[in-house]
Amino acid sequence: MDNIVNCASYANGKRIENLKLEDISEVLAKEDQFVWLGLRDPDEALMKQLQEEFGLHELAIEDAHRAHQRPKIESYGDILFIVMRAIALDENNNQVEIGETHFFLGQNFLVSIRHRSSLTFVDVRSRCETTPHLLQKGPGFVLYAIMDYIVDQYFPVIDFLSEELDKLEDQIFAEKLNTNITENIYRLKSKLIEIKRVSFPLIDICNKLMRFDTDPLIHDDIKLYFRDIYDHAVRINEMIDSAKEQLTSALEANLSLTSIYQNEISKKFAGWAAIIGIPTMMAGIYGMNFEYMPELHWRYGYPAILFFIIGLCMVLYWFFKRSKWL
């Protein structure tokens, strides 16, 4: 099936054989082996078969099939059901892709199910198979290896968003009254909030996996490794919070600079309006058609008034220029 990426049995830290789905129940009956099954976007029929082979709870199967779950960890008897969000950066269009990965962890099996995710776990499987001394600790180590790989993919995405934030800050102080900057800030902030929503529950998930009540699903030696994922999750959330604060400051700076620029425009309009008001006022006075106006019959009245208007306008222009209104 195209939905089955890989299915194999392991014993003593070594790969034994590839398995068909219908043969899994026979391997699960052996105490010295465990099964690692990887699925991608399985259909309902495959999920039903999965439920029968591993004895999974129907509610967990329903969640795993429908996807669109929040990151969480739930216990169904002696089986753990874990949901994580996988984040990747599409280098072709610089877009952030968010997929979903589900895990079923039993005492002698691990099932990983990917939904709408471009990440592959081929490298993870190879790395696990090259460390037999850890792989022999059971499926708990496999769960750690996959979770660690997923969390590591968060950092390039956050670094990319931080670079976008730096570019926005440069644009804020380099350009004037660019409405696209405010829009881009809100878009970037929405992406950070979305990543925060999927990364924050990782702290609780790792805390529960490190607790002693996960025996015997996770070997005590492997529980220490989940502390590393916990540290990464805390660091990721701190980076997101810092970026959000920086975005808020950038938005405030952009709004302040926009307000200052608009005030500068208003001052220029006011200055030019005052200058234009001089000839308008003089034209209004001499356009009232009074009969007895001494300047009307003066030979030099027109050039005198004209030079007076020009001179007064030049004085106002000098004053506003000195005051940096123009």
Rank of each mutant, 00 (worst) to 15 (best):
A274N: 04
A174F: 07
S126T: 12
A250R: 00
D2S: 13
G77I: 01
I16D: 10
W318S: 15
L316S: 02
L21I: 11
I73Q: 00
V151N: 09
I260Q: 15
D78L: 07
I16H: 02
F200C: 01
A250G: 05
R116V: 02
N18C: 01
L188H: 04
Y286I: 09
L143T: 07
F54Q: 03
L202F: 13
F290V: 02
G287L: 09
A8I: 12
E238Q: 03
G106E: 05
K176R: 13
R116N: 14
G106S: 02
V124W: 00
I309T: 06
Y10L: 07
I16G: 04
P156M: 03
N18Q: 12
L168Y: 00
R211Q: 12
A88I: 08
V83G: 01
K72F: 05
L39H: 04
K137A: 08
S249L: 14
A145W: 00
M282I: 15
H57P: 08
F141M: 08
N12H: 11
H57G: 10
I158W: 06
H65F: 13
I203R: 15
K268F: 10
I24K: 02
D152C: 10
I276C: 11
I218T: 05
I16K: 11
Y300M: 12
K30V: 13
T120D: 11
V111T: 03
E100T: 04
I260R: 14
W325K: 12
S242Y: 08
F54K: 05
E74T: 10
Q95R: 13
I203A: 08
M1Q: 09
D228A: 04
I158L: 14
E22I: 10
K48D: 12
D23M: 09
M281C: 11
A174N: 14
F104R: 00
Y230K: 06
E129Q: 11
S112E: 06
G38W: 01
N92S: 15
F81L: 07
G301P: 04
H115A: 07
L224C: 03
Q153Y: 10
E175H: 14
E175D: 12
L50C: 06
K223L: 06
I4N: 00
D23Y: 11
E183K: 12
F81S: 04
D170K: 12
S242T: 14
N93Y: 12
E62P: 04
I203W: 03
T120Q: 15
K167M: 11
A253F: 09
V27K: 04
I193G: 09
I276K: 05
T258Y: 05
I113Y: 01
R235K: 15
V142Q: 00
N180H: 10
I278H: 05
S126K: 15
S266D: 14
A88H: 08
I193F: 15
I203G: 07
Y76D: 02
L161D: 02
F109S: 06
I4R: 06
M293Q: 06
C128I: 11
V122T: 15
S259F: 03
D228Y: 02
D215L: 03
D43L: 01
E291R: 13
M47Y: 05
I150S: 10
M288P: 07
I150T: 01
N289F: 08
I24E: 00
